[in-house]
């Protein structure tokens, strides 16, 4: 163990809900690789594409017509901040994917602006993932991914793709944007899977 002389730390973050290596923030920091895309709701569409090329689509009005859920979750960013008890409203991906026939085990999520991220399909199911469009009672702000983003709070937040536009279902896994740049393919904060090989 390499000890830094004189360092004691504040230890104010000794919360059992805080994964290893994380600290609490009261703010909601923004991390994105490029400019914030501005996507009008009139043009917005969510596509689910299956491995055989079938495409399912929802307009904004169609998304709003689906049953929504209010969820309160903790979120964890790979840059080491965590935020507890964040309030969101969105549509569960169980609802979105209910009538989609697929043999896929993986998903590549595509965003406006070109961002991508990959996840096992099972991590998008069983009440663990949402298409979120409200944060803290308000419309989701563009810098946080509005009009709508993926929310997968049990994984590091880069998996919760902002400005989501398509979920591509795949038989085989493939790395997304940050995953190609050395970040972990799965990204479990409780196992501290920040980088490839962690």
């Amino acid at each position: 163990m390499t000890v830094t002389r004189g360092f004691h730390g504040r230890r104010r973050d000794s919360d059992a809900r805080l994964p290893p290596g994380q600290h609490l923030t009261p703010d909601f920091p923004v991390l994105s690789a490029g400019p914030t895309p501005l996507v009008p709701r009139d043009d917005w569409e969510l596509i689910v594409a299956t491995e055989d090329g079938t495409r399912h689509g929802w307009t904004w009005a169609e998304l709003m017509a689906l049953p929504s859920e209010d969820v309160t979750v903790d979120i964890h960013c790979v840059t080491s901040w965590s935020k507890l008890d964040t309030d969101w409203r969105g549509v569960s991906l169980d609802t979105v994917l209910a009538d989609v026939d697929t043999a896929a085990d993986f998903a590549m999520v595509h965003s406006h602006g070109g961002y991508t991220t990959n996840l096992p399909l099972e991590d998008l199911l069983d009440g663990r993932a949402w298409i979120a469009y409200e944060y803290d009672g308000d419309e989701l702000a563009p810098e946080h991914g509005g009009p709508a983003r993926l929310l997968v709070p049990h994984l590091y937040l880069w998996k919760s793709a902002k400005w989501v536009r398509e979920i591509e279902l795949m038989l085989d896994d493939a790395p997304g944007f940050w995953e190609q740049l050395g970040y972990h393919d799965y990204g479990d904060p409780w196992r501290e899977q920040r980088y490839q090989g962690d």
């Binding site: 991390l31 690789a33 400019p35």
Partner: peptide
């Protein structure tokens, strides 16, 4: 970044790194 996009810089040529009081 919004100024740059409004000035006509293509978004794919704009790379950003942000930090809040995080």
């Amino acid at each position: 970044a919004a100024h740059l996009v409004a000035l006509g810089h293509p978004p794919e040529r704009i790379r950003t790194e942000r930090f809040g009081p995080s």
